[in-house]
């Protein structure tokens, strides 16, 4: 592993650097589901007994900052992907809390040079402290050669 990547991992991984609360409005989760093409009533009908936000709704929630303060700028950042893990349904009409940390930092070297990837993870909890879901944002920074 490159020395600067190892140092960044030591300094930044697995330390919460942001906390934010999010209201989950039912009309917004229903519209989100509709635009995605969902047809299941549990995502579209607020009267359904198992009414819930669509699983990837949390991917649309952003913390106050994507990377920790003083994180090295390896290059221009671009959105390289999203991941979601679901443990319990996110219920519309509730307020949830998201805590963000850097989950991974790694590099790949190709023909155009080195690319550094940073994975920010937001862990979402309900008011009772139950861990509902994780949302990962993968940013790729291409270094200038």
């Amino acid at each position: 592993m490159d020395q600067d990547i190892a140092e960044a991992r030591d300094q930044f991984l697995n330390q919460d650097f942001d906390e934010k609360t999010f209201e989950i409005p039912a009309d917004k989760t229903i519209e989100y589901a509709r635009l995605c093409g969902e047809t299941a009533a549990r995502f579209l009908d607020s009267a359904h007994p198992d009414f819930q936000a669509p699983p990837t709704f949390i991917a649309s929630l952003s913390g106050s900052r994507a990377l920790p303060e003083n994180f090295p700028r390896f290059g221009l950042g671009m959105d390289a992907g999203k991941g979601v893990e679901c443990f319990l349904p996110v219920r519309p009409g509730t307020t949830i809390t998201g805590r963000t940390h850097l989950h991974d930092i790694y590099s790949k070297t190709g023909r155009s040079g080195r690319m550094v990837f940073a994975v920010s993870r937001i862990e979402f909890f309900d008011a009772a402290g139950q861990h509902l879901a994780n949302a990962d944002s993968r940013v790729v920074m291409r270094e200038k050669s």
Binding site: C36, E38, P55, T56, A80, G81, K82, G83, V84, E85
Partner: peptide, 20 residues
């Protein structure tokens, strides 16, 4: 995810990872 629910309406998504 919508595609998966069309295929299996009661499916619960445990995880999905996507590369853009």
């Amino acid at each position: 995810v919508a595609m998966i629910h069309h295929w299996a309406p009661d499916a619960e998504i445990k995880a999905i990872d996507t590369v853009f």
